[in-house]
Each structure stands twice: as C-alpha cells, then as structure tokens.
Amino acid sequence: MAIQRKAVALISGGLDSLLAAKVMLEQGVHVEGINFYTGFCVEGHTHAIRKKDKVKPKRNNALWSAETLGIKLHIIDIIEEYKDVLINPKHGYGANMNPCLDCKIFMVGKAKEWADENGFDFIITGEVIGQRPMSQRKETMPVISAESGAEDRLLRPLCALNLPETLPEREGWVNRDELYGFSGRTRKPQMALAEKFGFDDYAQPAGGCCFLTDKSYSVKLTDLWASRGKRDYEIDDIMLLKVGRHIRPKPHFKLIVAREEGENNFLQGYRKQFITLRTMSHKGPLTLLDGTANDEDLELASKIVARFSQGRDADVVDVEVTENGVNKSFSVQPLKSDEIQEAWRV
C-alpha cells in the first residue's frame, strides 16, 4: 500500500485555506493545520474588548476551519519574529502597513521548518493567482516558493493548474487532474467548491486576515513610530492601537480615551504602566496618557478628557491624574468640541 503523505496547511480562518486543505484530504493526504499569530490578527482578542461585541461571541475561524475539516491545528506565536517582517519588509508594503509578500514568505518558511521538524512532506496554502493585489499575483508565486525555502514542496491546490508542477504532483502524491485552476478576484469558483463540499458557515472577513490592511489602524501605527522616533513596538502597543479614541494634542504625548465600558475595563489593566486620567466630578471615560507630560500638558489633557465626560457642558470638571501611584487634581473647563483640533485625532 502506498505511504500516506503528509501536508501541513496554512490555515488563516478564511474560505480559501479551508478549501485547499479539503482538496488535499479528498485525495487521501494526511493534513494538519498551522496558524500563525502575529499580534495583528483579526482573529481572536478584539472581541473580548468592546462590550457590544460580546453579545455575539466571535469564534476563532482558524479553529473553526480545523474542526470543520477534522484536522489538528497548531497555533504558533510569531509575535517577536514578525517584528522584523513588519519593520523591514524587503518587498515593501501594500495599500496600508501590510507587508503581505514578506509576510507570506515568512509564514511559508516557518511552515517549511515545522514540516521538516515533524516529518511532513509538503506545504499547502489557499493562495489563488490574482486574488490579492500584492501577494497573490502570478509573478509573486515563484518568489514565495523560492524565498521561503519551500521551493517545489509548496503546493497551491486552488490554482495549481496555472503553475508549474510541484514535487507532490510529480511524485504522484497528489493527482494534478484533481487540482484547480482558479484565478482572478472573483469568488464564484470558491463559493461553488464550498457548496460542493457542503461548507456553508464559513467566514468572509471583509478586511482580510489582519489589522495591517486597515487604514485607520495603519495610521495609528505610523503615528506611534513617528512620535517615538523609531520603528519598533511591543505587544501592548499593538493591542492599545485597537482600543479607544487616540488623540495627540502634542507631539510628545497621546491620549487613549475609552469609548465604552468594555474599553474602560480593558484600559484598567494598563493603569500601572501609564499616566491615567479620570473625571471625578462627573462620569467619564478612563484615559491613558502615552508619552511624557508636564503640568501644563496634564492640564490640557484634563480639558480634553473632560470634553468626553458627562460634564462636557459644565463650567468646571475635576480630573484626577495618577502617575506611578501619585495623584494630582485638576479643575478645568472642558474644551469646546471645535477646540479639539481635527489634526489631533489619530
């Protein structure tokens, strides 16, 4: 009996990777999934922050895909290593701060390492030629194969017929005639294949797989780097970019103002690391101050925070500022809405 070959499938949680893995399973290949956590993934944590999002708890689509396929899923934390991909992408960025091509090369490379360590024969992805403007083009497919080191052990079951034969096809581990030749931005062939396999509850994320494709998130990240004078970040930084209103009234500090109760609770967890502002005379949001601030800055910050409190129309609002466990109080008149300059909003 022929040896059952093993493939590791990059599982993002989207439809394409689900289908690619299913096509391999249908051919009798042993498939296990791998999912990389960069810190920017839309999957996962943000639903835990905003209260309104808790009403309908969001599933983790990568886990859902694996469960639907009946395969194991290995989730790998690549937060630290990913920094270099994002900060120095050899192939540049897409429309926003998304270094998709470098990201794909990196992930396929990691999957290749994992495959080697765990005795897997080849790697599969759900890539489709022409599906995404930056990373999924006919010219980028060989670049990913070569620069990741996966070479012809990288098989894309959904568009294989548009590409040269790979090792699994040549060796007869998979039957090329049962692979697909999808191309272009249309989703119709994927939807038809999903129907054939009986998948009907799959995820259709509007903004792709990560926050780096999001314009407003990218603006906040660029602002963070500009204000610090260096392109670097910690996981807390990238989490906080997802939460609250970000207002930078001065180059050396920014305010993160909670927009609702869930964000308020989330920001509570950061009280010890940041200067915090709270309105005492009126109900208001918890605010973190990121950067450095003298008393004049703190007074301006207090006026802004007061603007977002229930005392916005009052003559005076009392604000308590806490830094390293020491409290200071400011009694301020809230800024008028037109005094909060548009340019301050990040």
Binding site: H47, P57, R59, N60, L63, K72, I75
Partner: peptide
C-alpha cells in the same frame, strides 16, 4: 481573564 477562552480552548481541545 479573556472570556473568549470559553469558546476557543474547548474548540482547540476537541480538535486535538
């Protein structure tokens, strides 16, 4: 402390 674990950890356990 993340309530998401009540879904995600059982799902991961079922799969594995």
């Amino acid at each position: 402390t993340d309530p998401g674990v009540m879904q995600d950890i059982p799902a991961w356990c079922r799969i594995n």
